[in-house]
Design a protein around this nucleic acid. Sequence first.
DNA 1: GTCTATATAGCGATAGAC
DNA 2: GTCTATCGCTATATAGAC
Lengths: 212, 212
Amino acid sequence: MPGAAKKSQPPGRPKDLGKRDAILDAAKRLFATHGFDGTSMDAIAKTAEVSKLTVYSHFGDKDALFKAAVESKCEQQMPAGLFKVPPGTPIRDALLAIAQGFHGLIHSPESLSLHRMMIANAGQDAHLAELFFDAGPRKTLSDFERFLHQAVAAKQLDIPDPARAAQHFFCLLKGIGHLKLLCGCAKPVPKKEVAAHIDSVVDMFLRAYGRG
Amino acid sequence: MPGAAKKSQPPGRPKDLGKRDAILDAAKRLFATHGFDGTSMDAIAKTAEVSKLTVYSHFGDKDALFKAAVESKCEQQMPAGLFKVPPGTPIRDALLAIAQGFHGLIHSPESLSLHRMMIANAGQDAHLAELFFDAGPRKTLSDFERFLHQAVAAKQLDIPDPARAAQHFFCLLKGIGHLKLLCGCAKPVPKKEVAAHIDSVVDMFLRAYGRG
DNA sequence: GTCTATATAGCGATAGAC
DNA sequence: GTCTATCGCTATATAGAC
């Protein structure tokens, strides 16, 4: 009984997982740079160095491949320890560190193209949008909210509604620059201006929610 | 010399400006709802009730028509007197009124689809993005900055950097809800929640920049 | 200037050989 | 399971009549 030793596996030759990864990787890059409509299955196959039918064999159709690409990007983008600051750090320094980490994250080319993908597909797949929000913004927000709760308990901050305050902080941080980059305004923003923006946000946040 | 009486006019029969408007109107609606790639010249011609060749005759090609549609929408969307509040209004009430107006503006279907159009075309035409920013966000921001300057002069507010504070206010107002709508999360947000969000933003702004 | 009809090209998806 | 070759469809842009 050849083949009976391998259990719970579809019949026939197992698929080449290396090729699957290559396809997914090519799809992520191309969808991100050229959008859904601007990316052909031919181009993905060519970039992944496989035939087009192999792409269809692995992912079924273009929609499914797109969805798989978005899911993969969401997982890949979530940072590890954004909110881990050494205990005893002054609250201003802790906020500055978090602000710098978050600012860098959302202004990365990876994150920007993910945002563009989601916005370009508005109305196409509402479930996909939920998935993105849960894996991305919602998770980051609730992590930061926990941080704020601790700071309030430690009497470092005075916040009536930590959930809203968390949203306030991140929205301030995005600023208008995020939208500009999303639209493709390609002016390189000077590092000094970025630092000044982050400083102004932390200042404003502490004016509102600091103690004394 | 028939025709010599009309000066500075191209030769031949003058174009039908009513049809031009119909085409532009159809283009604005279709580009906004289905995106650039999702909108065919056939569909625009059919919606405008003219032939496809008439569309090409008026606008040259698809790119030029798209650009004309964006320019027209930018002009059309700018509100009239967003920052006109009766003199003597308490600062909190003035900010609330401005906040409600701006919130309604950017969350309108018109504004959302304009944002989607700009973001979908990131990198295609950098000049178009600049045009959008000058006609939209930049203008609104500088108008509000002027309002803040007056409030500071009247000792109603205490703001170290009005330009940044104006940005802070509008970014807070957008909140996370704007991104959700941009992505097509179609949950109808309850009016009560919108009001609570606006309240929380004005509260936070006054905690940071209010006097006393 | 406006129309109907068409040339040309590119994409998503599939058939059949190995 | 993977490949090459191809079908069917749609879209942009144009030619020629009125």
